[in-house]
Write a protein that binds this DNA or RNA. Structure first.
Length: 758
RNA sequence: GGGCCAGUGGUCUAGUGGUUAUGACGUCGCCUUUACGAGGCGAAGGUCGACGGUUCAAAUCCGUCCUGGCCUACCA
């Protein structure tokens, strides 16, 4: 059997599922169920992610513990316990949403089996020289006391104080505007734009910072003469632009701020102060000395930690890096090899890849994550990597592969660093391969916010491991916003719990909403769609009830299809073809709409009405015609229920059983017949009949009332549907004629009709 | 600043060159049809964001702009 593999997003279990998760997992489930019906063996693992900062931060908050105080081991136990509670809850929620993940394929990212694979891939990269350890500037969160990758940095708009400060020169002074006066102790240079005539001739001269350091003045194109005073102080290191200057002017890096966000001894009397406090203190001092000529507030996008929103610093530290810059073209090529649903999401990945400027720092100074399988020599700092057969290994607990440093014989100490959790998350296709998946996997479903992380890192890591793309297709779901169009927040009171919907309307109605959300788009939650789902289910239930009533009238099954039957069966074939191709394109919205419209407005409104006379008439009439109607009703009932099954699994299973207790819903239906002639006739008959029903309605006649005589000016065109027209509209005498319609004939669709008894 | 997506009746929505622009919700009117009154039938309601262009023909293609969302970058 062909395998269709889905790289289930391992749910991060820091809390319960919200409606956005419920929606996107429903959409994944549509694919899984559809592919099973198409005969694929579907690989759809149940999995959860637990590694990393969010759970650590939650545990710190909830238990009021500090990992440094309680120790690594105890802290990790607390994290594991906390995760455990949430895993159970999330599994229950999956069940209540009818998500058909296979719990015989289960993984969690903190298991030794999973982490072992992370470590093995690292050892491989280490041996191939694709990772390296270096002292260089990285994003640093002072609160979490760890390095961060660019992908873990967010920006927040903030009002910042902008201080115009006097720097004295031998016989004059210059004004420097800065938002970060606390970095003055690390000031290395002043710079102005070459064309700025206010500062002409200052190049090469020296100014004195307010704390007494002498710094050189240079000209630099990158300075914006219109911003601030046009004179910039270059510190080591305030932001990314500083980094470029550090590189350009080969500046020696001073550290004004340490790993915990406190000022270093370099800062003299400010040593030990937190950054913000030091900033206020130095501004006060400078004001006292009358060195501040102007203070203003400006809007500033401040880089913050994605998890705790603390402003990040750029610190020079020893970190492990993965050589990502060398593989930008390869990842770009992989983006082109994968199909994207919707296609424009490919651009997001390519834009991100091409915008990268640094290698990926993969080491973190945290706890609840995969340990880096490395020991360092305490004497010469040599690196000893774990042997493959040792993994999973925790160097803070387990012995190194060799007793002492192979180079100098010094003692070895296990690294207490862990990996960026994306090192774990980015190998899900490799882990799935271990669990029976094919590779490349068929589908990666995920949301658009983690294209720069999960998708990018997976493409990169899997390429480095296999030389191939990780997926054939990528399906990107959007976010679900509150009904008011804003993101849902408990504190705004606009959050909707998916379980609330399930309890009120059932999981199928929530899934009906999910089916109507376009991929890649953010959709406000719509109660209307849920209610519409409930109405549609009611309709479906009643349609099936009618079909089963008809089935009860069946005797020998001996049949002779009328043109009306051939018309609706042909219409069904067309619907099937469309629905199938929509499903293949992951276009759930159109697929369900196609089937829904057919069920409601063609099958129920028209065919069932046309077939009723054959179902309800007495035994003396043509049995074979009645059997044909029963057959057709049952065939269409079963097939539409099947086509709706990926979306509405609960009700369709129940209804299918009523229609076909011996059969099974598990196969996707195939077209039975195509008869274009009957189809065209049927379409004409149905528009005529519904037009005449509307006409009766507009004359305030009950639909069951009898019309004594009706003439239709259509010649033989509708002859095949004579009985349907006569019986459905309760016409005693029906005539077709080629004659031109007289004055007073009603126009019904493309035909003229004369109601003779009016 | 760059990129992507979107802008259609009161609200939401379908619709990538061709008759009177789709449907849902809401509103109003009518109807006990042996599946369904939590239904059926019908009505009102739209300068398809703005302007310009291409075309016999534009909601649809092109250009410019406006508005909103997301991504990305970022001025010390």
């Amino acid at each position: 059997m062909m395998l269709y593999s889905i790289d289930t997003p391992p749910r991060y279990v820091s809390g319960p599922l919200h409606i956005g998760h419920a929606t996107s997992y429903s959409q994944i489930d549509f694919v899984a169920r559809y592919k099973r019906m198409r005969g694929f063996d579907v690989f759809f693992p149940l999995c959860v992610d637990v590694n990393g900062l969010p759970i650590e931060v939650e545990v710190e908050k909830r238990y009021g513990v500090n990992p440094k105080e309680v120790g690594r081991k105890k802290f990790n136990e607390l994290c594991r316990e906390f995760a455990e509670q949430n895993i159970q809850r999330v599994r229950d929620q999956y069940n209540r949403l009818s998500i058909s993940m296979d719990d015989s394929i289960y993984y969690r990212t903190d298991s030794p089996e999973y982490r072992k694979i992370t470590q093995l891939t690292f050892i491989d990269l280490f041996e191939r020289d694709l990772v390296y350890r270096d002292k260089r500037p990285v994003n640093w969160c002072p609160r979490c006391a760890t390095s961060l990758a660019d992908a873990e940095v967010e920006y927040r708009l903030r009002k910042s104080g902008f201080n115009h400060i006097i720097f004295k020169m031998d016989d004059s002074e210059v004004i420097v505007a800065t938002t970060r006066p606390e970095l003055i102790p690390a000031c290395k240079l002043l710079a102005y734009h070459p064309g700025d005539d206010r500062y002409e001739g200052l190049e090469g001269k020296t100014a004195v910072t307010p704390i007494g350091d002498r710094v050189k003045i240079v000209e630099d194109e990158a300075v914006d003469p219109d911003f601030g005073s046009g004179m910039v102080m270059i510190c080591t290191i305030g932001d990314k632009e500083d980094l470029r200057w550090v590189h350009k002017y080969k500046l020696e890096i001073d550290r004004a701020i340490d790993e915990e966000g406190k000022m270093t001894p370099l800062c003299g009397k400010y040593e030990g102060m937190a950054v913000e406090k030091a900033r206020r203190a130095i501004v006060e001092d400078l004001e006292e000395e009358c060195l501040i000529v102007k203070k203003e507030k400006i809007d500033q996008n401040v880089a913050v930690c994605w998890r705790c929103h603390t402003p990040i610093e750029y610190l020079v530290t020893d970190q492990w890096f993965l050589k990502t810059m060398a593989f930008k073209d390869e990842v770009d090529g992989i983006a082109d090899e994968m199909r994207f649903y919707p296609d424009f999401m490919r651009t997001r990945l390519k834009d991100w890849t091409s915008s990268l400027e640094w290698d990926w720092p993969i080491s973190r100074m945290r706890y609840y994550a995969t340990p880096i399988p490395i020991w360092y020599c305490e004497d010469c700092s040599s690196v000893v990597v774990a042997k493959r057969e040792q993994c999973y290994v925790d160097p803070t607990l387990d012995p190194p592969p060799v007793d002492k440093c192979p180079r100098c014989g010094g003692p070895l100490k296990g690294s207490d660093e862990v990996f960026d959790t994306w090192m774990d998350s980015s190998i899900t296709p490799l882990v799935n391969r271990e669990n029976g998946s094919n590779y490349p996997m068929s589908l990666r479903p995920q949301s658009h916010d983690i294209i720069r992380t999960w998708l990018y890192y997976t493409a990169l890591r899997c390429y480095l491991s296999t030389g191939q793309k990780p997926f054939d297709s990528v399906m990107i779901s959007g976010f679900i916003l509150a009904p008011d169009g804003r993101p849902m927040h408990a504190s705004w009171g606009n959050a909707i719990d998916p379980i609330e919907i399930v309890e009120k309307y059932g999981s199928d109605c929530l899934r009906y909403f999910a089916a109507n959300c376009a991929l890649g788009m953010d959709t406000p939650f719509r109660w209307n769609d849920v209610k519409r789902g409930a109405k549609f289910q009611r309709k479906l239930r009643n349609v099936v009830k009618f079909v089963t009533i008809a089935q009860d009238k069946s005797q020998n099954g001996d049949r002779d299809l009328r043109p009306a039957d051939r018309w609706i069966l042909t219409a069904l074939s067309k619907v099937m073809e469309k629905a199938t191709s929509y499903m293949d394109e992951m276009d759930f919205q159109h697929a369900i709409r196609e089937v829904e419209d057919f069920v409601w407005h063609i099958f129920a409104d028209d065919y069932i009405e046309m077939a009723k006379y054959r179902i309800y008439r007495g035994d003396g009439e043509d049995r074979r015609e009645t059997e044909s109607a029963v057959y057709t009703l049952a065939r269409i009932g079963k097939d539409v229920v099947k086509m709706l099954h990926p979306f509405l699994p609960s009700i369709t299973e129940e209804l299918y059983y009523q229609l076909d207790p011996e059969g099974s819903i598990i196969s996707w239906p195939e077209p039975e017949l195509r008869d274009e002639k009957s189809y065209d006739g049927g379409e004409k008959a149905r528009s005529l009949i519904s037009g005449l029903r509307a006409l009766k309605s507009s004359m305030a006649l009950p639909l069951s009332s009898e019309l004594s005589s009706v003439t239709i000016y259509a010649g033989g065109e509708l002859a095949d549907f004579y009985d349907e027209i006569k019986e459905t509209l309760h016409i005693r005498d029906l005539h077709f004629t080629d004659a031109p319609p007289p004055e007073g004939a009603e126009r019904v669709g493309e035909f003229s009709v004369l109601l003779n008894d009016r």
